[in-house]
Design a protein around this nucleic acid. Structure first.
Length: 717
DNA sequence: GTAATGTGTTTTTTT
DNA sequence: AACACATTAC
């Protein structure tokens, strides 16, 4: 197959680039995945690079999987198998599995998810006798996480701590890290950090990987953080064959430590870098691209680029204003059905939103309308209780020092072991400096413990030991199958005999299927590899493009995907852009990029919706259309005819878009007020107080209900 | 030791 | 509205 056919000149230049650093600035829809895939194939076939000497970093496992398949499709057979393709986390996890013991990371190390990490943070706070109210675990956790993104460790962080809270975080970090180490656990950030430490402390290990990787490629480079930057620099340090691909306009993970400077300053880091710009968009209609451009243009500090397309203008962009979230959802679903009626498919459509909480209404309306859908993210499969419960047993088998998993496994199914017994074990373990599991095996740890309890403990130990014996020579899926029965979990759910229990059992069966799929696609069949793989599954990895269903997901998850029809919902001030972004430096720019990412997913049709009122924490609140809507030129738009509104006496408007500055003014009934647009009027009614206040005012032209927070209203006279 | 009940918190975004 | 967590009742 001709690897260069159908590539435009810059794409071809990127694909055929020989050695040395290469930066590919790839605008949305410009065929960047194609370039990466063809480049890797080209390196293998034309430059005779052995596949095993290539490492390619992708943003999701799904992208990794796809890339592998596409390379195989180009070169035939399973040539791509030996290539290291995966996310930063998956690749680091693999390196640690191989060489982690050099720095005291056990082969079977556990990867703690958000919930697990939070628990360890709270335990650490408790151990330090620090009050959760004064030091919120979530805040401390985030501070530590951000410092790890910067490749700091507890010591260096403590040394530069500049505030009381930072000093507190530094103290918690030390205890947190000690506890994590004691139970052989790593958090997501540690995966990167520990590899950096491994490379620092053991030059021979670093050398091994540097020699091995003749070519290093990184996708979505604009979303790498400093630690990842250092890692890439290390890995490519020997051969200096590094290819990075990205688009600064699509950087949407600053909050996770992503540093756009990595891409903006690549040429400074590598003065001999070749820079290729991909400016032709093959995805979207002219109209969609123009709208996206109009919006993103409002951001300062961009790498200037002139994205263009030869595609047709296509249809105008639709903006629809709904009364509330439910109405918005019904509008979107009606549109989906109309698309269906005119010969389209469900899988053509994606419904996007800023926050996961917005998915519920959409989901409800899909159910009501009988429209098949899939939600990506929100309640994650691997974070479901039953899945985590079973995994706790397996994690304990893989890593006997994982006390957190032990506690979890011990609790379900109920076996009559509670806080008292656990307290005794913990006290013994602390004194004897052993793991909880080890303490269970020592009779002296359980003096004064009732017969029944020790019996239950021994039964539990036998389950763990049996599973461990199995895991030595069985595949992960086989071990899980056994675990369901040996632990009594299956029996417990069957005994419950409710729909809920049945669906949980179904989820556990699904887990076995997943294990089989992972075994097939990666060739790694062991329990440890499976558990570590599972911990690193991204939301979007669960997206199935083979099902004919409309897809619901967040703007973050949709990065890298494309759809013929895109619905972008909840375009309201405070939601998109999100209120939390307002007081952060550059926060608004990032929200705008997020919006840009949403727009540029659309091939043919883009539908933007907002609601006048939206439920926040269950109670309705007034919404103002997003400023991003104002940034789209009118000639690209059509406004969808408002649906017939059920007779709500008056709709609530802000009557203007300016945000009120300064303190809220209070008005009493009867007061004279002046509005920038409607003139002078009299207050007829005041509902609520503070931020949510709605006043009804009689103006010469009409009676209006106004949201006090937003309406440009002032006292007359 | 466990189930039932009450209460407070939550919503950014995710590997 | 939904969930985690704490308290209470058994």
């Amino acid at each position: 197959m001709d690897l260069l056919a159908d590539l435009n000149p810059p794409q071809r230049e990127a694909v055929t680039h020989g050695g040395g650093p290469l930066l590919v600035l790839a605008g949305a829809g410009s065929g960047k995945t194609r370039v990466l895939v063809h480049r890797i194939a080209y390196l293998i076939r034309e430059h005779a690079i052995p596949p095993a000497r290539i490492v390619a970093v992708t943003f999701t496992n799904k992208a990794a999987h796809e890339m592998r398949q596409r390379i195989d499709a180009l070169l035939g057979g399973s040539v791509a198998r030996p290539i290291w393709i995966g996310t930063f986390h998956a690749i680091c996890s693999r390196i640690l599995r191989i060489d982690g013991e050099r720095i005291g990371v056990p082969t079977g190390f556990a990867i703690y998810d958000e919930e697990d990490q939070r628990r360890v943070i709270r335990d650490s706070l408790e151990a330090l006798r620090m009050d959760e109210r004064r030091f919120p675990p979530a805040v401390i956790h985030a501070m530590i996480g951000r410092a790890k993104d910067e490749a700091l460790d507890a010591g260096r962080y403590a040394a530069r701590a500049a505030s009381f809270l930072e000093e507190a975080a530094a103290r918690v970090w030390r205890v947190y890290q000690e506890r994590m180490r004691a139970q052989g656990a790593l958090d997501f950030d540690d995966l990167i950090g520990e590899v950096l430490r491994l490379f620092d402390d053991h030059p021979d290990v670093l050398s091994k990987y540097q020699d091995r990787f003749a070519q290093v490629l990184v996708d979505e480079y604009q979303d790498t953080n400093h630690a990842q930057y250092l890692l890439v620099r290390s890995l490519s340090g020997r051969h200096r064959n590094i290819t990075v691909v990205g688009d600064d306009d699509q950087s949407i993970y600053k909050w996770r430590g992503a540093n756009v400077r990595n891409i903006l300053e690549f040429e400074r880091d590598y003065p001999d870098a070749t820079v290729v710009t991909l400016a032709q968009n093959y995805r979207s209609s002219k109209t969609i691209l123009a709208a996206a451009h109009a919006v993103i243009q409002h951001n300062p500090h961009r790498h200037p680029k002139d994205l263009w397309t030869a595609n047709d203008p296509g249809v105008p962009i639709t903006i629809h204003e709904a009364g509330d979230g439910g109405e918005e959802a019904r509008f979107v679903i009606d549109e989906v059905r109309a698309h269906l009626a005119s010969g389209g498919r469900l899988r053509d459509g994606v419904i996007l939103y800023r926050t996961n909480a917005q998915s519920r209404v959409l989901e409800e309306e899909c159910l009501k309308a009988g429209v098949p859908y899939q939600v990506v993210g929100s309640v994650r499969f691997y974070e479901r209780k039953e899945v985590k419960d079973i995994l706790a047993y397996l994690r304990l088998v893989a890593n006997p020092s994982d006390n957190l998993s032990l506690r979890r496994a011990l609790a379900t199914p109920r076996r009559g072991i509670g806080d008292v017994t656990l307290g005794r074990l913990a006290a013994y373990a602390a004194a004897a400096e052993c793991t909880l599991l080890e303490a269970m095996r020592r009779p002296e740890a359980l003096q004064d413990t009732p017969r029944a309890t020790t019996g239950a403990l021994h039964a539990f130990l036998k389950v763990i030991d049996d599973l461990r014996a199995l895991s030595a020579d069985r595949t992960a899926s086989q071990v899980i199958t056994q675990a369901l029965t040996l632990t009594g979990y299956q029996q417990m759910l069957e005994a419950e005999a409710t729909d809920d229990a049945a669906s949980r059992l179904e989820n556990l069966r699904e887990l076995i299927t997943v294990a089989q799929e992972v075994e097939e696609s990666t060739g790694e069949v062991g329990l440890i590899a499976f558990l570590q793989h599972l911990a690193l599954v991204a939301d979007v990895d669960t997206y199935r493009d083979d099902l004919d269903r409309v897809t619901l997901m967040t703007l973050h998850s949709v990065k890298g995907l494309e759809f013929p029809v895109v619905f972008l919902t909840g375009l309201e001030e405070g939601l998109c852009p999100h209120a939390r972004a307002f007081d952060e430096e550059g926060g608004l720019d990032e929200e705008r990029r997020l919006c840009y990412v949403g727009f540029t997913r659309a091939k043919a049709r883009l539908v933007l919706t907002h609601a006048r009122s939206r439920a926040i924490f269950g109670s309705p609140s007034i919404s103002v259309p997003s400023r991003f809507l104002d940034e789209i030129p009118d000639d690209l738009l059509t406004r969808a005819a408002p649906r017939p509104v059920e007779s709500k006496a008056l709709s609530v408007t802000a009557g203007g878009r300016s945000h009120r500055r300064g303190p809220l003014v209070h008005f009493d009934v009867g007061a004279r007020v002046r509005h920038a647009k409607f003139g002078e009027g009299e207050v007829l009614e005041v509902e609520g107080e503070g931020e949510g206040t709605i006043v009804t005012v009689r103006f010469p032209s009409a009676v209006k209900r106004l949201a006090l927070t937003y309406a440009p209203l002032e006292r007359a006279e």
